[in-house]
Amino acid sequence: MPRRRDLADQRRRLSAATWSVLAERGLPGLTLRAVAERAGCTTGMVLHTFADKQALLVHARELLHRRTGQRADAASADADSPRAALRAVLWQAASPTEEKREEARVWVGFLAAALADPVLADLHRAYNRRFLDRVGGLVAEVRPDWPPADCADTAISLVAVVEGLNALAAVDPQTYSEESQRVAVDAALTRLGRGSDGES
């Protein structure tokens, strides 16, 4: 038992170090050595947890998905209507603050890497589809009168808006400011019209 607990603590420490390196140096700076230095351990210890650089990248991508998923869960749980839950989930995926833009830069780095890495590409598709399913489910709650195909199409449009804002705000936060992102998200939501909750 102690050994299992030690391994779990080690993985948590390396996960924290991985995210810290990613946030500071981006994907190109994520190396086994950099993670080891940040965690205050040897590269051998990192390799004991992650077999190679690919395993480290996969873990880092999973970390990003977990962070955004937890925020989406919290955002929808605090909402008082289906439309408010949908708006909150979309807004937590946008990049209005420096902390969120930092996360967006990491996401863009993974997207770029996925173009040449089939493993990361598979992960990106899987996680994006989970987000689409989440948004599509919320759209269906707002518009239970719509057929599933319309809900799915609307989810794609809404996700495209927030992911586009993420990518653009990562390099041009002046143009894609918090206010402009808010306006864009609210404008995208007008496509739903007046839903079952009476809101529009």
Rank of each mutant, 00 (worst) to 15 (best):
M1F: 09
Q10G: 11
R11M: 10
R11D: 09
R12T: 13
T18H: 07
W19V: 13
W19F: 11
A23W: 06
A23L: 12
A23I: 07
R25N: 11
L27Y: 02
P28N: 12
T31E: 02
A34H: 08
A34R: 00
V35E: 02
T43A: 10
L47M: 13
T49W: 04
A51T: 15
K53Q: 13
Q54A: 12
Q54L: 10
L56N: 03
L57T: 04
L57G: 03
A60W: 00
A60S: 11
L64H: 15
G69E: 13
G69T: 14
Q70Y: 03
Q70C: 02
D73W: 06
S81F: 07
L86W: 05
A88G: 08
L90E: 02
W91D: 10
Q92R: 15
Q92N: 10
A93T: 08
S95W: 04
S95D: 08
P96W: 05
E98K: 01
E99K: 01
E99L: 15
K100I: 05
R101P: 15
E103V: 04
E103P: 03
W107E: 07
W107S: 07
V108M: 01
F110Q: 01
F110E: 01
L111M: 11
L111I: 07
L111A: 15
A112P: 03
L115W: 03
L115F: 05
P118M: 03
V119M: 03
L123Y: 12
H124L: 13
Y127L: 02
L132Y: 04
L132D: 10
L132F: 08
G137E: 09
V139P: 01
A140V: 06
A140S: 13
E141I: 07
R143V: 00
P144L: 09
W146F: 09
W146A: 13
W146V: 03
P147V: 04
A149L: 15
D150I: 03
I156N: 04
V159P: 01
V162K: 02
G164S: 08
L165W: 01
N166E: 13
A167N: 07
A169F: 04
P173A: 08
P173H: 10
Q174T: 14
Q174P: 00
S177W: 12
E178R: 10
Q181A: 02
R182E: 15
R182C: 09
D186W: 08
A187F: 06
L192A: 02
G195W: 01
G195V: 00
S196Y: 09
D197G: 08
D197I: 01
G198H: 12
G198C: 09
E199M: 05
E199C: 03
S200Q: 08
S200F: 12
